[in-house]
């Protein structure tokens, strides 16, 4: 009886959120996977769809558009995650060196985070207008004024590196946040450790190389996961910048057209499943690592 009294109130307290998450996150996830394994390729007709196993999951790889959107997502992820990490780290590094009016700079770099991807996208669509030469507007126009005409390019309409351009607004938006993470990480390195390293004859660079950077590893990992999962399911930014065009197609926009333009729920669910799985590839190892670390400590 006393035992029950000990755990029951706690359970009652968390059970609403457990139930809500069970239904609206895992229940709907399960429903999505189930839909993805049927042949319900017609949204309007009232057919439940028969179970077809992994047919949709395999079949989609023979679609050229799918290959393209996966490639786009990879290019976007590499440029965005890499760019935001490097830029965020660099900004934090400068801050950490004790810049004057640091809090002012910190606020300025963090502000873009407060803007939604849609608003960012609308502004950058204009900045990244692909017209060149005399008709140039946005950044191409700026390059024109500066006499840097050779820098003008097609931005997100470039057939090969368009998605790299698409990552620029995302980097702009998220690097301030990454800076804040790293700054906290830098501050978490005890001054004694640095001094100990200096006493042992480390140069300033050596201190970073051998002391500070290794201690930033957990922060880097968190940043990587946060950026990675944003990147793999990017949708709003792409739609705001370019709409539903093949040239900037990513899995999430493909899913949108599959469901609402082709009226093919099974295909949409298949793409959604792949997006979830790709995010899981990022997140699950992190959770395992985190749980192990928790046990050890």
């Amino acid at each position: 009886m006393t035992r029950v009294r000990r755990w029951l109130p706690g359970l009652l307290l968390v059970s609403p959120s457990i139930i809500l998450i069970a239904v609206f996150v895992y229940g709907l996830l399960g429903w999505n996977f189930k839909l993805a394994m049927t042949d319900k390729h017609d949204e309007i007709a009232e057919i439940p769809g028969d179970f077809v196993g992994l047919e949709n999951f395999i079949g989609i790889w023979s679609e050229e558009r799918w290959g393209l959107s996966v490639r786009h997502a990879i290019v976007f992820t590499v440029v965005f995650v890499g760019g935001a990490l490097v830029l965020g780290w660099f900004l934090a590094f400068l801050m950490e060196k004790g810049i004057r009016a640091e809090s002012g700079f910190r606020a300025v770099y963090l502000f873009p985070m407060a803007v939604s991807f849609i608003a960012t996208g609308v502004v950058w669509r204009w900045l990244m207008n692909s017209a060149t030469g005399e008709q140039a507007v946005g950044l191409n126009r700026l390059f024109h004024y500066l006499g840097l005409d050779f820098l003008q390019w097609q931005w997100f309409r470039d057939p090969d590196f368009g998605m790299a351009a698409m990552a620029i607004p995302a980097i702009w938006q998220m690097s301030g946040y990454i800076m804040a993470l790293f700054l906290a990480g830098f501050r978490g390195v005890p001054e004694e450790l640095r001094e100990a390293a200096r006493v042992d004859g480390c140069g300033e660079w050596g201190v970073y190389r051998h002391v500070v950077l290794p201690m930033l590893r957990p922060v880097t990992l968190s940043a990587l996961i946060i950026l990675g999962h944003i990147s793999l399911k990017v949708f709003d930014l792409v739609v705001a910048v370019s709409g539903k065009q093949i040239i900037t197609d990513v899995p999430a926009t493909f899913m949108w057209t599959a469901v609402y333009d082709s009226h093919d729920p099974a295909k949409g669910a298949t793409i959604a499943s792949y997006i979830v799985l790709s995010v899981a590839v990022f997140v699950v190892p992190y959770l395992i690592w985190d749980a192990r670390k928790g046990k050890r400590s």
Partner: peptide, 14 residues
């Protein structure tokens, strides 16, 4: 219809 049109649109995009 919508499905066919979307297939044509995809083909044009590619």
């Amino acid at each position: 219809d919508d499905q066919w049109r979307q297939a044509i649109t995809d083909a044009v995009g590619l």
